[in-house]
Design a protein around this nucleic acid. Sequence first.
DNA 1: CAAAAATATATCAAACCGATATATGCTTAA
DNA 2: TTAAGCATATATCGGTTTGATATATTTTTG
Lengths: 192, 192
Amino acid sequence: MHVRTLCLGILSFCDKSGYDIRKLAADGNFSHFCEASYGSIYPALAQLTEEDLVTFEVVALDGKPPRKVYSITQAGREALFETLQIPPGPDRFKSEFLFYSLFADKLPSNEFRKLLIRKISETKEKLSGLRHAGEVCDHGPSSFALGYGIAMNEAVLEYLEGFLVKFDSHQGDGFFDQKNSDLNQTELSDAR
Amino acid sequence: MHVRTLCLGILSFCDKSGYDIRKLAADGNFSHFCEASYGSIYPALAQLTEEDLVTFEVVALDGKPPRKVYSITQAGREALFETLQIPPGPDRFKSEFLFYSLFADKLPSNEFRKLLIRKISETKEKLSGLRHAGEVCDHGPSSFALGYGIAMNEAVLEYLEGFLVKFDSHQGDGFFDQKNSDLNQTELSDAR
DNA sequence: CAAAAATATATCAAACCGATATATGCTTAA
DNA sequence: TTAAGCATATATCGGTTTGATATATTTTTG
């Protein structure tokens, strides 16, 4: 999905500035399934303006820097719902933490434990943010999306906490030591 | 994390061609937490070769096109473990499905139900792939990463199936109809 | 037997991220 | 108090990545 579409989608709910859109995608109610940076949002809004899919009004507040508040046009709504006809692509999940964990047995065992602890507390934070948003929200579809994120993060938290217990019960005896140390080939080659 | 690091990481386990690396990241045991396309992998391998972090050997098999099989060097291993000193960034999750679902109440109700059904079957497929990989795998860290993916996808499946039941028990009466139809502002503006 | 899919390398435009520049007001701690 | 840091706000730019495409051969499938 293009950032164009994300902008149209957000603006279909209410008027927003580029700054606001970025906040929603980075910290707000969209952040658990979307991402977009200034470097893609501002050009996208400029392009959408040229195509008359959005318009903007400069709002100069006393004090604060002036805002460009964007609104979606009728043509914009049509373009959005046209895009929604195309079936959505698959979910995408990227985890640097899991990549790092692949080398858990090559790191000092304390190092991996630290990563685990940190991940657990990050997950708890994420979870409490999502739960709070879920309590406040009374827009059905948004609640559905928040629930999805909560379910996912609860599962992750449970998994990590369970693992930590197992890990700690093997104090210092190399939890990850390979039973068969010569399977580097087989373990990776049989992919698909 | 850069594709460079992904390549070094995979090559630290065993020798691979660019094609193999891409398969691992797209369909294989890495695909549930990594992603990389040819357009980033081949340039990365070329760059790593120039820096003597990897070497390659051209293997011409009878029939099949020739392969460039890459191996990590000692300098490459050192560079990899140097990178692993930097704390990992946060997990990233992107879901076009969840974005689409935000407009569930603006689509014909059948449309959203179709998306749900499709997502459920995709999740089941993903899950059976991960479970199979988990059964075969006896590398501790990889099993940990697979378990993480399994836990996540199980939670998603449970959530979606539970939701489908609730959704179907409200046949045709507009499950997502807003109780308060004028809260487009509040629902989005209170982000963070 | 022909069509499609898999194997394999490689490149390119378009999209996107992350960092940075610029400017102002508000909050907070030495 | 006053400097530092943070939040608000727009915008651009270099470098990374994606997704599509080109090319060529073999294997599988209908």
